[in-house]
Design a protein around this nucleic acid. Structure first.
Length: 282
DNA sequence: AACTGTCCCTGCAAGC
DNA sequence: TGCTTGCAGGGACAGT
């Protein structure tokens, strides 16, 4: 489901609705969602603490607790975070529930909902972050949260080979770009998924870096992309609107909105569906 | 070191 | 209608 813009929208929702409120109690319904550290560590680590900050790196949400511990939430394919008043009927696959202290007289719950259970919630001591979450250290720069330009991207691509699209999906190269935004970025910058790094001029890489930042920022502004099948929603349950601006993703067989002269094609690349305009992208 | 295919799991749509 | 098949936005892992 979620890529950087959707995760950032969820992060902002947590910042607004959860940070600063004491967590009174915790329920864990499905152990798989807390598999990394286990149910007891999550319940004990969160109960009677207060989140003091909500940050993000790539698709990882990283919250700080007043106890000194940290919480990592990853939504993977189908995870959602929702904040609802106590007593609201919980949807199927609500695996973790935080009971929040009332604010303005309203007691709420924060839910981690995840049908496919690829997502996870981890509570850990930041001192041991490298041991608990070794993947964080390998992440490339976050184009929104970190300095990011053509020179930095060129450095990340140095020594890499193969097609550009799988490289954009590689979180060690750039953190936060997923399948939708990779396709949208490549279309706006006029590059076919199959172009190899060695055929790209520095000027083109500069442009690529700029467009990555541009599209991710626009999508955040739109509250992310909500597709037809899954419903990505923010913590209030609102859908995003950036799908209205998609030029290739989900538009296979439809006319290209940019050149107006050909149809969007779809192929599988490294196991991912890939949409592109054969005329605009070369 | 870095690339590719496989797997984790559930739900949904398309095809028969 | 009911079954099977394939596909879905991510990423760890094994094998090369």
């Amino acid at each position: 489901m979620p890529e950087l813009p959707e995760v950032e929208t969820v992060r902002r929702g947590i910042e607004e609705r959860v940070v600063g409120r004491k967590i009174l109690s915790v329920e864990v319904g499905r152990e798989r969602s807390v598999r990394r550290v286990g149910k007891e560590a999550v319940i004990q680590g969160l109960t009677n603490t207060t989140m003091v900050a909500a940050r993000r790196r790539g698709k990882y949400i990283l919250c700080e607790l007043d106890s000194g511990d940290a919480v990592m939430i990853h939504l993977r394919m189908s995870g959602r975070v929702l904040v609802e008043p106590v007593g609201t009927k919980r949807p199927p696959h609500t695996h973790v529930v935080l009971h929040l202290a009332p604010r303005d007289g309203q007691a709420d719950e924060m839910w981690f909902v995840d049908p496919r259970t690829f997502g996870e919630v981890v509570v850990y001591d930041p001192e041991y972050e490298g041991a608990v979450l070794p993947e964080l250290a390998k992440l490339g720069p976050d184009p929104i949260a970190d300095p990011f330009d053509g020179a930095i991207l060129a450095r990340r691509l140095a020594g890499r080979r193969g097609a550009i699209k799988p490289l954009l999906l590689n979180q060690h190269v750039v953190a936060g770009v997923g399948n939708i935004y990779a396709d949208e970025v490549l279309h706006r910058v006029g590059l076919r998924w199959s172009r190899t790094v060695d055929t790209l001029s520095q000027k083109k890489i500069d442009q690529l870096a700029l467009v990555i930042k541009e599209i991710l920022a626009e999508a955040i502004e739109s509250g992310g992309s909500t597709l037809e099948d899954t419903q990505y929603v923010d913590v209030e349950g609102n859908v995003g609107s950036f799908q209205e601006n998609h030029r290739v993703y989900g538009r296979e067989g439809l006319g290209c909105l940019t050149c107006g002269k050909t149809f969007i094609r779809r192929v599988m690349v490294a196991g991912r569906s890939t949409a592109y305009c054969p005329r605009c992208q070369r």
